[in-house]
Design a protein around this nucleic acid. Structure first.
Lengths: 192, 192
DNA sequence: GATTGGACCCTAGCACCGCTAGACAAGCGA
DNA sequence: TCGCTTGTCTAGCGGTGCTAGGGTCCAATC
């Protein structure tokens, strides 16, 4: 059995390598540069090996998205944990979210823009995605205000951050005023 | 001279045909189905003809974006014109914006998601794009509130709508609650 | 009206993409 | 030691955006 275990270990290790390499390449040169040929060359295997781990390129994107989602949830929780008071937590959350998006654009795209073949907002949504939303909900739910469902408020605040993140990065919003935009959102949307 | 004029007319007409066909194909089957081969076949010319009008596929997307941008500005102005009072105008604007995004997903993507080689938020930004932003500014600028620049407020409100539009369409926000989300934004962000 | 020049368009092909069939080698169990 | 399974690679399919080069047709000139 030991042989089989070793093989499984090595296989799992190679899968991690594929995902890490795809992510690295995407962050360095953008997702359009992540081709199966380049990816195979970087991990020093032939193309078909990729397909013994993933159904296709889409699933690789999905794997990066799940990994990134876990990290984002952690980043948001870490930022909100040290803040005192509901509004301060929301402010910290917003900064952390946009900071993550700016520092990890390719990962952010994998989670929120590209098609990674993942189910969103459903029962069979992968746990990391659910948990990332939960991380937002923890700080945003408490400032939804009367008559507004915490989930709905979280969705709207999240969507606003998403809009700022994506429009800024694509150059459709002038760069540099992000902090002012965050303050406007944090001032007006939440209710103590 | 008449011959040359006729040729120029025909050439302009063919260019319109290319843009219209690209748009139609994109709305029918998505932008990934808009290939230069299919596009050429539909307009009943060979591929290289496309390149005598546009530098490449990107520029065709850009042309669709400019056309759509003009339409969106008109749609927003039409919706806000009949509304009475600042908040009602904002509400009408939000509905019109999301309605346009939902009815013309491919055009919306050309304007706000894809790379059409256009300059945004700069001096040399094409007029239709500037005007679309101006259309938003006309109704949103008046509810920015004290100490908030109308442009900044418009950017933030727009980004929020953009987030709702894109996350909903990609299935990352559950469908159906759009009206509630709009009301939340319209209730909280503007200041009379 | 014939000739010539140039504008115009098409065929064919480049390098690349995601993905897969089938040959082949390596290593395990009998 | 042999047979077989498992795993990997080479090669190739149909597609992509884009372009070089040849041929055709038509307008202007003599």
């Amino acid at each position: 059995m030991s042989v089989q275990e070793r093989k499984e270990r090595e296989r799992a290790e190679r899968e991690r390598l594929i995902v890490a390499t795809a992510r690295e390449l995407a962050e360095q040169q953008g997702w359009e540069a992540v081709t199966t040929r380049r990816l195979a060359e970087r991990i020093e295997y032939s193309q078909p090996v990729l397909y013994s781990h993933f159904r296709g390129k889409r699933e690789i994107i999905g794997a990066v998205a799940l990994q990134g989602s876990t990290e984002m949830a952690a980043a948001v929780r870490a930022a909100t944990a040290t803040a005192v008071g509901p509004r301060a937590r929301v402010h910290a959350l917003a900064r952390a979210y946009l900071d993550f998006a700016e520092r990890n654009p390719a990962v952010y795209d994998a989670i929120f823009q590209l098609d990674g073949g993942l189910a969103y907002a459903q029962e069979d949504t992968p746990e990391p995605l659910k948990d990332a939303f939960a991380a937002l909900l923890e700080s945003l739910g408490e400032v939804a205000g009367n008559g507004i469902a915490p989930g709905l408020f979280t969705e709207v605040f999240w969507a606003s951050l998403h809009g700022v993140a994506t429009l800024t990065r694509s150059g459709r919003l002038p760069p540099g005023d992000t902090e002012a935009r965050v303050e406007l959102l944090v001032d007006r949307l939440p209710v103590d």
